[in-house]
Design a protein around this nucleic acid. Structure first.
Lengths: 194, 194
DNA sequence: GATTTATCTGAACAGGCGTTCAATTCAACC
DNA sequence: GGTTGAATTGAACGCCTGTTCAGATAAATC
């Protein structure tokens, strides 16, 4: 037996990516075998290698594309620092709530990246942090924010906002807009003067 | 060959725990084999089973003991809500910075717990969250805090504080006390009225 | 209808996995 | 000095791992 009826590369390709995404997020990169992924897609393990050179690249591509999209999704608008910060906070929450699996993987599977791939991902993440820090620095310079340390505040804000993903569930007590507003309010106050 | 010179159960036991802790934190539970752990300890894989019934229990015990210690380490002092909150924030940062590996494992390896073990850990974590939420509720009732949602604020604060572990490195720009104070300041402002 | 080409199978490779257990060794006790 | 018992080895169990590849199949092209 070989090629079964209705098999198409342009369908199987995305299916491989989606199965890897779901399984890596649920059980972790190291715990998921290529045979499991193949099973989800409906092919034998060997067929996966038509769509990825190896398992590591499957993980790396998911993370790289995720972070590139994150960066493409936000750059500081031409506005006062406070408005820039609000824009950042709301975009961050919205973006992260929309793709919980990718967020989880990009966060949890760093140690399973080979050194070279790790450096690439780290650079992208660092770039995102720098964008927020630039906003905080601008606000500090303008006297609108009062943060003793912009780098530290950057990390604290990102950790707080990303933390939404650990508890938010669709159809829960609060909808996304409400969560967004409440978190923005806490961020605003945390960096406010006084 | 068998028992080598100078072998002692009361030494090997802790060494197994420490090796597992270090390796699980560095490379992840699923990526570390019993043979690797045994190699770090300096015994053969079979000897590990004198100190743990299986690999799963090795992980579970690390997490359970960590969370039990966390709970034992803090209960709300007899003081006004603001002082209670400061006490919480400072204890949380201090406790977490002191054991980064356990924190990392308790956070990252939840999905590698068997269902029954998972429930135990979840319950302990929930208890910790509830203690913070009680403080926020008290402060809200006293009109000292202004939080639109105490559960959400609980999660936001814990995420923010635990986030310290992702970037803090010993001997860096800021010492622990400075970090503690800066984070407490952000927490204080985030829940403040106004 | 024949040929080409993309797609996939199924077996194989060499190695690693968690766990068990009889056999062995060494330290402590009588 | 002989006996006991805890500590450990090393081999074995059955199974799973990522990856490769010759061969088979079905769709697309001519």
């Amino acid at each position: 037996m070989a090629r079964t009826q209705g098999s198409h590369g342009d369908i199987t390709g995305p299916k491989v990516r989606e199965a890897a995404l779901r399984l890596f997020a649920q059980e972790g990169f190291a715990a998921v075998s290529m045979r499991r992924i193949a099973g989800e897609v409906g092919v034998q393990a060997g067929a996966l290698y038509l769509y990825t050179p190896d398992k590591q690249t499957l993980l790396f591509d998911l993370m790289r594309e995720h972070l590139e999209e994150l960066l493409a999704n936000w750059s500081a608008p031409d506005a006062p620092p406070l408005a820039q910060l609000e824009d950042f906070a709301r975009h961050h929450i919205r973006f992260h709530l929309a793709r919980p699996e990718l967020v989880f993987i990009a966060y949890m599977e760093l140690r399973n990246l080979e050194p070279e791939n790790f450096r690439v991902i780290e650079r992208l993440r660092r770039e995102y942090e720098d964008r927020l820090e630039a906003v905080l620095k601008a606000g500090q310079a303008a006297g609108e924010f009062e943060v003793p340390d912009t780098k530290l505040a950057t990390m604290a804000i990102i950790a707080m906002l990303t933390g939404v993903n650990t508890w938010y569930r669709e159809g829960g007590r609060l909808d996304r807009d409400a969560v967004e507003s409440i978190y923005w309010d806490m961020v605003r106050k945390a960096v406010a003067a006084g």
